[in-house]
Amino acid sequence: MIGAEFETVLAGARNGDEDAFARLWRDLNPPLLRYLSLGGDTADEVAAETWLTVVRGLNTFTGDELGWRAWVFTTARRRAVDAARRRGREARLRWHASSWVATVHDCADDVIDTLSTQEAVALVRRLPPLQAEVVLLRVVAGLPVSEVADVLGRTPGAVRVAAHRGLHALADLVDPAGVTPAEAAALRE
């Protein structure tokens, strides 16, 4: 997040300041890539297309930084859907269903503390699509529920439920043995 300077930076980018634009790019490209890697190998390509669209629409955007992020991620999602369409039904299935799981190795044996970003995203990809998207938009993009709902075209309630279930599922993935209720209660005391 850029924070208080966001307005200035955005205005600079609008006026053609390359440094300001670079700052916007550096701020959002990493989360964009992480989110877009839900779709597999096309993340870089789709992110580049997203930025082209963002550059074209730079002057039409109005809003604060949260609105900016929501707008960029909405754009990214559209480009991802386009890319999936281009790649045909197989790719679309990969985007929507969990066939990508095949590429994910089992993290159970890994030392969880040294989990890399890529591995974490790979874990998220094992979730059902909506949950995966919601989790990434919430955690990676840092969007509030209402913005995530806008990006995904869902109700805030549905987003909340998906986030809740997704996090539970993720916790199960990370620690398949799970924590028994008794242990949890013990941990709480």
Binding site: R34, I112, L115, S116, L123, V140, L167, A171, V174, D175
Partner: peptide, 11 residues
């Protein structure tokens, strides 16, 4: 607690 490393890695 289990999620913390994942969240940390994601962000």
């Amino acid at each position: 607690a289990a999620l913390a490393p994942v969240i940390r890695a994601l962000s």
